[in-house]
Design a protein around this nucleic acid. Structure first.
Lengths: 203, 203, 203, 203
DNA sequence: CATGAATGAGTCTTCATTCAT
DNA sequence: TATGAATGAAGACTCATTCAT
């Protein structure tokens, strides 16, 4: 499973070359995971890999190209890990999403460091980001607990519910707020809230 | 509502100072929104603001500090905009989340550019990121449509459902995969999936 | 006489700035004169000028831009030095070119080092270049001496004639060979040779 | 006519070797002609030649050596092409320079790209250079036209005259300004101008 | 002879930050 | 407060050359 398509003009032609490229890839994954893209440097990556600086460019066109290769690779691996959990498991289609989610969570846990590059915001912002989301989740959890106390829920409320709802909200914001502003926000909110309501609320 | 807490040692003492700081803040919002944190430069921000380079440090300790101030500001404004939608609206607690979500989506739409700084990943990665998430959402949508075709759903399936589920998954990955690895992934997946199942599936 | 047009966004606004820029310009002239463009480095120029590396970019957009500024400056100065020698000297128009040429030669002699950057070929090629041109001039001189010996000349033949003829040939080659290939070479050669013939040969 | 002297320790011993070297030479000529010396790279030359990078050093000691070989080769070829035009053509010695010049111009025209490496200045400077010389030629042409209008010329003035005079001036500057500063500039100017005067002006 | 991986010094350029005026 | 010049560490990338296979 090479992150680099074999058609790449820079793909290694000898076994030795293949080893070097792999070393570079691994070093980069570690480095990016620790420091994020911008704070990682090519020098540092090559020295981690035990390779000369110049050799980097034998295998990758640029720092950006390496990053893209890594993300693409990760993306393919998530897919590969999740797919089998879904197929032929004898469950209903929607229920089958549960093992898929389990598989996904397991994958993320295994590739923690690298995964945060894809899904967290700018590294500098991480503190602010954490505060922001923990605050949001806490608020939602408070609301749900309130509903629970009022006897309005059909399931015991859990932190998982709060984060699930917040993730939902954030992604809908990104999708229908940032990326595409054509759809009515009320419409979107209605559909999403209905799902949560039926999923959690009593009767 | 100043973005800078009044206790800040660098908060302006004169009216003129206040105007300068506000200009800097606005310029920064625009700049960060366009280029992301790392590709924005202090020179460019000051020149946008029509202010001398040196003056920047009269108002902000560093580029990082400015960024944090901006995120904090944004965070507070989201809260302020969402809060009233929730209070005293005579709806049940969970149903009240619907206007809250509407308000949130509206806010994001108004502050598109800036908002992506908080919620999108590294700027370089955006293309990869987009492909990654659009792919994920498409996969989920396909699954839900399958369930719908099989007559297993209680509501008409919409793209909103797919993005909602994916946001949920991603955030749970971040929360229980990256940040905290103590909780059983199966447990988390079970709770989340149950919510979706009940929210979408037929009785 | 600044080499940088005052409209340049990077032109210095303070006296101190003006001094720094001048130092950079002078250092660059020396450096380029010694090593040619490619072998000169910005680090070395700034250190000659006693200025920090970064300061270079306060005054010049790039190494290329500096070079262009220098050439333009030199170009203007030649013109300024040659012009007065031509005007109002009471000589016929063509005869007036003689003091102009004197002035030009004097200028070149004063700015030797820098001047060779404009008019010599690639630095690496200089040795080959010298051999090439000295050989050419020697050949021409030989021919002219032959004519002289045969009594066909109206003036004593001098090395100057040989170099003059060669310069003529080379420039016609550049102008009507390299830059513009439309004109008949025989035509060009006829005109040029006629001039030399009448200028040197016995009636 | 090999560009490499047969004594060269790296001259090829087999037919195959000779082909490889020739391919390298041709590729280099193309490359240098397009990009100039510094912007040409050994990798690019070898890849143009369809030869492995390492093989370059089997045939040439260095990039510089290759360049010198090329210039020397070109130099010899100019000589070879010009020589026959001069010999035994039954013209007077000076008149015989006319077909020589024709031959030279023809050669340049055929080898345009490569020729500019020898005779043009640093590649970066070319724009400045062009402006510089075109300006100079225009000035001279203006002067000559003035003389023509005043009835002081014996031949119709042509652009060729202007470029010829300018080439003359520039080369005299190089020869007696840059390379050798011992001779009186007035003396040089007198000799050269006399030639032009008699060549162009009315008796 | 051919190959192509490895090397690392060297280059230009950027930019947050400091400081004298 | 405002200004803008000065700083220099840091970064990405290039490329001639060497060398093991």
């Amino acid at each position: 499973m090479s992150a680099i398509s074999p058609a790449d003009p820079r793909s290694p032609r000898t076994e030795r070359g293949r080893r070097t490229q792999r070393a570079l890839l691994d070093a980069a994954a570690a480095e990016f995971g620790e420091k994020g893209f911008h704070d990682s440097s090519v020098v540092s990556i090559t020295s981690r890999a035990g390779v000369a600086l110049g050799s980097f460019y034998t295998y990758f066109e640029s720092k950006d190209a390496l990053f893209r290769a890594l993300v693409e690779d990760l993306s393919n691996r998530v897919r590969d890990q999740v797919a089998p959990a879904v197929e032929n498991n004898g469950l209903g289609v929607i229920a089958a999403e549960q093992p898929a989610l389990s598989a996904f969570l397991g994958f993320v846990r295994e590739h923690k460091e690298l995964y945060r590059i894809i899904d967290e915001a700018e590294f500098v912002a991480n503190d602010a980001w954490r505060t922001h989301y923990f605050g949001g989740a806490a608020r939602i959890l408070g609301r749900l607990k309130l509903a629970e106390a009022a006897g309005d829920t059909s399931v015991p409320i859990d932190e998982v519910h709060a984060w699930a709802v917040m993730g939902m909200n954030v992604f809908l914001g990104l999708r229908f707020g940032v990326m595409d502003a054509d759809r009515s926000v009320d419409d979107v909110a209605e559909i999403a809230n209905a799902m949560v309501r039926r999923g959690i609320a009593r009767g």
